[in-house]
């Protein structure tokens, strides 16, 4: 654990070493997220509510998604790069260290731009999510579960590259989760909705957590934890199995 903690401290120190760049990258992402808020405000002002979702709900959804995305893509930035690292043979440096490889890879790199998402998500919840101690506690729980699920899904999709030799699945998995998670689940119907609760569990990354904050339900919360747990196990197993097929690229990387 000490090794992993030191790894993470180094990653944080590295990203903060150029303070001006760190701040500007965070600011750009915050501005980007504000544009999405602006879009949703314009949208709901024009159309009223859509299948039970209105401007207030969608801002909650956005706060959970951006905060969870900030953790998965910013704090654990390599989650999105597992497939690329596997295909390009960039894992040599990790395998030589006396630490769990997956945990080390995930903690090794922090992406400042996506840390902006995390900052934005928290600020959005505090400003538009009607925070009370109870709602804040559910927000923290929901973001934690959603970020575990999102990270696990990215690792799982990226690990397919160990077996396929290409990383298209990882890229598509990433885009699918981010695109599908950014919209309320109730605009979908039939097979698409089933897909979003199962194979591409985008519903559990945004819509379900947002509903939990609005109206907490122990069954849904347990379901969210269970899905996150299943995907975390699958991600860890697929990465471990994939490492057996890993071929070195003689590349020393971070």
């Amino acid at each position: 654990m000490r090794g992993l903690a030191a790894t993470f401290r180094n990653a944080l120190a590295e990203v903060r070493s150029n303070r001006a760049s760190f701040v500007s990258q965070i600011s750009v992402m915050v501005l980007n997220d504000i544009v999405w808020v602006f879009f949703w405000v314009l949208f709901f002002r024009r159309v009223g509510s859509v299948r039970g979702w209105d401007g207030r709900n969608i801002l909650l959804l956005l706060s959970v998604l951006t905060a969870a995305g900030g953790i998965a893509l910013g704090v654990l930035a390599n989650a999105r790069r597992i497939g690329t690292m596997a295909v390009d043979g960039q894992l040599d440096a990790v395998l030589a260290l006396p630490v769990p490889p997956l945990a080390h890879v995930l903690l090794r790199r922090v992406e400042a731009t996506n840390v902006g998402d995390l900052v934005f998500g928290v600020v959005l919840f505090l400003s538009a999510g009607s925070p009370t101690p109870a709602r804040a506690a559910v927000f923290v729980f929901a973001v934690a579960a959603a970020s575990v699920l999102l990270t696990a899904f990215l690792v799982l999709a990226g690990s397919l590259a160990f077996f396929a030799g290409r990383n298209e699945a990882g890229e598509l998995g990433f885009h699918a989760m981010i695109v599908l998670g950014a919209y309320p689940i109730d605009i979908f119907a039939g097979a698409a909705k089933v897909l979003l609760y199962t194979a591409v569990p985008a519903a559990f990354v945004s819509s379900v957590p947002a509903r939990l904050i609005e109206d907490f339900d122990a069954g849904s919360a347990a379901c969210l934890v269970a899905v996150a747990g299943v995907f975390a196990f699958a991600a860890s197993a697929s990465f471990t199995l994939g490492l057996r097929r890993y071929t070195s690229g003689s590349v020393w990387t971070r």
Binding site: F43, V47, V50, R51
Partner: peptide, 12 residues
């Protein structure tokens, strides 16, 4: 995704 959103909005 986007077309579904807009069609639902149009329907509503």
């Amino acid at each position: 995704v986007l077309a579904s959103l807009w069609r639902v909005a149009v329907g509503a």
